[in-house]
Design a protein around this nucleic acid. Sequence first.
RNA 1: GGAGGGUUGGCUGAGUGGUUGAAAGCGGCGGUCUUGAAAACCGUUAUAGGGUCUACACCUUAUCGGGGGUUCGAAUCCCUCACCCUCCGCCA
Length: 426
Amino acid sequence: MLDIRFIRENPEVIRRAIRAKQLPEALESLGELLLADEERRLLRQDLEERQAVRNRCSKEIGQRKRRGEGAEELIRTMGELSAEVKRLEERSRSLEDAIREHLLEIPNIPHESVPFGESGRDNVVVKEWGQRPSFVFDPEPHWELAVRRGWFDLEAGVKIAGAGFPIFKGDGARLVRALQNYFLDTVGEWGYTEVRPPVVVNEASATATGQLPDKEGQMYRLTEGLYLIPTSEVPLTNLHRDEIIDEADLPILYAAFTANFRREAGSYGRDVRGLNRVHQFDKVEIVQFTHPDSSYEALEEMTALSEDLLKGLGLSFRRLLMCTGDMGFTQAKKYDLEVWSPGQDRWLEVSSISNMEAFQATRLMTRFRPGGAQGKGRPELVHTLNGTALAFPRTLAALLETYQQVDGRVALPEVLHPYMGKAYLE
RNA sequence: GGAGGGUUGGCUGAGUGGUUGAAAGCGGCGGUCUUGAAAACCGUUAUAGGGUCUACACCUUAUCGGGGGUUCGAAUCCCUCACCCUCCGCCA
């Protein structure tokens, strides 16, 4: 959500952002928003004048009564005024509802460094790291080599829950645990506080981070009105909802390992083969609350952290700068990291790191007080960022495919040896 | 799941339907005193919106868990939701 005052004063900036993000429906929302806002501002002035009169007269009535004087005729005129006040209040309330609703439909503004583009084809490859592995044999895709060895079982998952709920077993399950420890230990060294949040959230939390109303169809909804989290960004970012943070405590860094749930309705084909796209998956997520002046440095640092994890695993990857049309609704700037999958001969997205600037903080009401510990200044909104340290299933897929050997074994990168207690999966 | 009790400013905690945005204490800030500090004393100390003004500042509205209602007037009465506490039941 953007600040209504900014929108009011810069409607052209918003129109440009809406076009850049390929969201033409939002233009209509903007028009209605500006109309409702204007009407409300005029109405408030009228309303507040009447409220002032009412307050003054009510006090007068109180004083007269205390003196034992009558006030019948004043009470009678006040009845009419009060009815009018009530009518204006109702109108004001319905305008505020409309404003809030339309405000949620206005996307974030892309940062000036983001390239204009219509779709994923316009994303820019910023860097590529590592040698793609070469093989003396035909590398297998992960769903063949791992299923054969029982490291994961897709059919049992279908029986128990449905398609898209993979089951990891034996060394497959141990590998998940090893990755979890490797990721969490590493982000801990980078200064992130480890958090174990709930995997369900309420409507207010999902709205504050922008999952609602934009991505309602992506989430599983439980009875009781709770949602299964599509990412632990939601609970982590909501940790400081409705709070004023000491400036000295910024930046705040959180990391969490959780399961994540996505309905992924409408997906098909090679995208959903094996572990490529599933309904439940693990990942380690990192989140930062920063001072507005340093959020873009934080974006680079977070991206460097995710890349560091991939470098540690020795996987070939590339970094994409997402264009305006391929970015999400809430983001000002976003990088994706894609890892090379030799068994499928394609890139797989394993990480996505974004700066929301104040877009989430506006809904969250997460602010800091500038001017040091005693803090005299008015509270200002923080910037929020989040990123996938790494998503497990695709990382695992690329790992198995990259390190498969001619003898059928799978080598393990050195960083995992202490966690697995061995150098090869047999 | 059942019964009862709560939610007031940064914190603790008063509050009779009528100058209550809200007592008092603590804390914070400024000052007096002191070589300095403590203590004592004096003063000051919520947030958001709108308006006037070069500015200092002033005016005004809203806010006592959230929302709605009753009333000329609500922290106070009613309804509803959320959360917290106590007891009972159930439970890894």
